[in-house]
Structures are given as C-alpha cells and as structure tokens.
Design a protein around this nucleic acid. Structure first.
Ligand code: SF4
Ligand code: SF4
Lengths: 137, 137
DNA sequence: TTTAAATTCTACCTTAGAGTAGTAATTGAA
DNA sequence: TTCAATTACTACTCTAAGGTAGAATTTAAA
C-alpha cells in the first residue's frame, strides 16, 4: 500500500522544480544532494522524466535540468502512470479482476470510498497545488 | 498502491472461512481450488496464518483448517500486519520519515484525508463486516 | 584546442516478493 | 499394521523494483 520508490523520487524532484522556478538549471549532482537521492539512480529517473517531457535537459558543461511545462499542467496521476504505478485499473484492493455490481469482492463496499478519494487526489492534484512552504524536499 | 499479493490471498482465505462456519474442516487442496490460489503457495500462507493464530490446523488424514477465533475478532489491519503490509508507520505517501506539523512533505495536506479513511477501513473492518453474499471468492 | 562538467546509454548487481519442488511428519481409515 | 491424505518444513527458482558502475556523448569555459 505504497507508491513505488521511483514515483516518490519523481514527485519530489518535480516538486522541487515547481518550487524553484528561478531562471536557472539544476544539475543531477545538485539535485541528488539537495533531495538525498542516490546520484546514479537519480540520473536514471531524470532520463525518464525527460523522455516523458516533464523535464527539459540541457546537455554538456553548464547543462542541467528545468521544468518543461508549467507546474499547473503536471498532474500526479501523469507522473505515476509514467512509472506504471497506480496505472492499472486492476489496482483494486483484492485484485479479483473486472467487477460489475453483482459480482464483487468482499472488500468492495468498504474500499469504494477511500479509493474514490485516492483517485481524486491523484487526478486533481498538480505540482502547483502541492504544499511548497516549510516542506521537506 | 496495492496490497501485497500474499495479503490479498490471506484476506480471501480468512473471509472464506468466515462465510463457511459450518462445522467442518477445509483442506488446502479444497481451498486452492475454490479460491484459485496456487496450492503450494497457499500451504505456505496457511502456515503463517496458523502461526499467527488466525487459523487452527488439524494435521494428518482427514485433517484441514478452520477459523481459530470468531470472525468479529479478526481485523483487516491484523492480517496486513502479519504480512508486513501497511504495518510501517512510514507507509506515508512520500516516505520522508517521521513528520511533525512544521516539517511535512509536499503531499501531506492532500494525503491526510484519504490516509485517514484507509486507516479507518483497515482498523475497523473485521471479517464479520465483509460482504458475504454474492461475492467472488 | 583542450578540458572539465554535465547528460546519456548500456550493462550489471542486489533485494524482496511471488511462486515451485520435494520431502518429512502426522494421523485416521482400511 | 499398512497406507493414503493431509499439514509442516526446507530449500530453491523467477521476476521486477531498486540501485550501481563505467564509459560515451555533448558543450561551454579556459
Ligand atoms: S469488487 Fe470492487 S473492490 Fe473488489 S476488485 Fe472489484 S472493483 Fe475492486
Ligand atoms: S509529511 Fe505527512 S504525508 Fe508526508 S510523509 Fe510525513 S506524515 Fe506522511
């Protein structure tokens, strides 16, 4: 019942950029230190974020990364989908496959409300909505 | 964002017993077929459920399993804890460790409400509360 | 032009969850 | 007593996530 580690890192990195929209680039080295993410693993994740067009990269010396689109246009659900997290509609609590009203699993009734709130959170929260002040990185 | 497979199986098995409290034992073979759980994996899980005292086992020929306590006394949270699922209080959405009011992660505000509902569901739902009629096994 | 700081790419190692295989131990029925 | 049905135990394989290593590539400063 947790987000993949990779997704967590990705959210934290993207959130960092959303809160530091000064006109400068941040290198993987800097990010790794600031966010306490293993450097080598971070660069791997950055590659994915670049391909997914959340992040723009400038190569070479003095290069680095910056956000590729406004924070308001990046939803949590998009980030999670990039890492195959929460993406499968099978993410249902007892994973018994596709269910109609008649044929449900034992936890269905209890699960619907929390599930709805979770979906809402992931679908409606953008980087812009995230808390920015006084936050851990 | 899903329960461990093992926890799912465990819940389904225990729920099955809660709904079949006739005075007979069920063997691993039967359960595996009825619930479509790989036999060998099921026996492994049953061993854990027995040690955790959710289930009582009768060995030898004509042996099998039965519930070890009333369904009303088995909470979902207890089952999950048995499989190290949801157990760590670190199961917090961005896993940034222990947080006080001042020092929180970026998702904290959005996460509190769904998290609360989830905890409530796991802590307050017992085998007795689970839907029993017209349900998949 | 050289060099150093950066991203990018490919390949590998590690770990934990998921599942399998085989055998020992138990026990009631025949 | 024998035997077959059962649980219990030990050890292994498979897979995907998490993480590491090293070299190739890009680019601007010196
Ligand atoms: S019955 Fe409901 S809770 Fe259970 S798997 Fe289907 S949709 Fe999900
Ligand atoms: S700040 Fe809140 S949401 Fe984030 S890890 Fe801590 S308790 Fe969980």
């Amino acid at each position: 019942m947790q987000l993949h580690n990779t997704s967590q890192y990705a959210i934290r990195v993207l959130n960092f950029f959303a809160n530091h929209s000064d006109d400068r680039l941040y290198s993987a080295k800097e990010l790794a230190e600031l966010l306490s993410i293993p450097y080598k693993f971070l660069t791997k994740i950055m590659g994915i974020l670049v391909k997914a067009e959340f992040i723009k990269s400038i190569q070479g010396r003095e290069g680095g990364y910056e956000l590729n689109k406004p924070a308001s246009q990046i939803k949590l659900i998009d980030i999670l989908n990039t890492f195959n997290d929460e993406t499968d509609n099978e993410s249902c609590i007892l994973g018994v496959g596709i269910c109609d009203g008649h044929n449900k699993c034992a936890l269905h009734d209890q699960w619907m409300q929390p599930k709805g709130l979770l979906r809402k959170m992931f679908e409606e929260t953008t980087l812009e909505n995230l808390t920015s002040a006084d936050c851990k990185l």
